[in-house]
Amino acid sequence: MDNLIEIKNVSFSFDAEGEKRDIIKNLNLNIERSSFTVILGHNGSGKSTLAKLMNGLYKPTNADGSVLVDGIDTKDETSEIEIRRKVGMVFQNPDNQLVASIVEDDVAFGPENLGLTPEKSRERVDEALKAVGMYEFRKSTPHHLSGGQKQRIAIAGIIAMRPECLILDEPTAMLDPKGRAEVMSIITRFNRENGMTIVLITHFMEEAELADRVVLLSDGEIISDGTPKEIFSDIKTLKSTGLDVPQTTELLYQLKKNGIDIDTDAISVKETAARISAALHLEES
């Protein structure tokens, strides 16, 4: 598979009160087309900065670093719009992303900016709203909707531009469990059914289990990169980043530490139960 986003040797730093602070340190990362990547990291690990580097909102601060989106360098000012159209981005707070006070007008914002004809914009707005299951709310006002619904509209607003890649910067952080589940199921469906490239930035480990690949970020550096199972079985590294390990993983880890012969690569409750039951049968025989 080819790479949609190539991050080569990128550093990002800024001056805070006369002191140079490095947010991203010599980072290399490729995002494959149609993949589902989760970037995990605690607060201040540089994960939001990394996201903004991927669509050119931020540019690498070192001269030899470059971010290529579908072969286009983000440092190239003339292709800014082209890059943003290819790589759509959804932020944490849905309230601060919606522009218009009517749902369909808001979703139309992107297509309108691209200069599409009214008919084409209409077609894309309807399509995007149906894709996130908010079509019947097209005439509503966002402030009457729940957080999860607002976030789905924000996603629809990006989908309407038909991007190849969707970057989501902690899209569920401000939502209740129901809203979180709605948003996660939409993201997974886009990836599985439409082959859309997804980069999900989060600090919820539970969300990482749905991905093809998990990248663990700490202090601007990648400390681990692999499938969810590989990452979650390496509890020591996970804990060193200061993240909360899922309870299931923690349980298996503690069992293993106490001398029980058990596989620690499970993430979901079901899998964990299967591992424990397998271990129990082993003990018996």
């Binding site: 759509g88 369909e104 992107g110 309108e112 900016n113 599409l116 914009s121 707005v125």
Partner: peptide, 16 residues
């Protein structure tokens, strides 16, 4: 967020 949605000050913008 507006920049991410290709807003560039209304140049070439067509209303739906």
């Amino acid at each position: 967020a507006m920049e991410c949605r290709c807003y560039n000050g209304g140049v070439g913008r067509v209303r739906m």
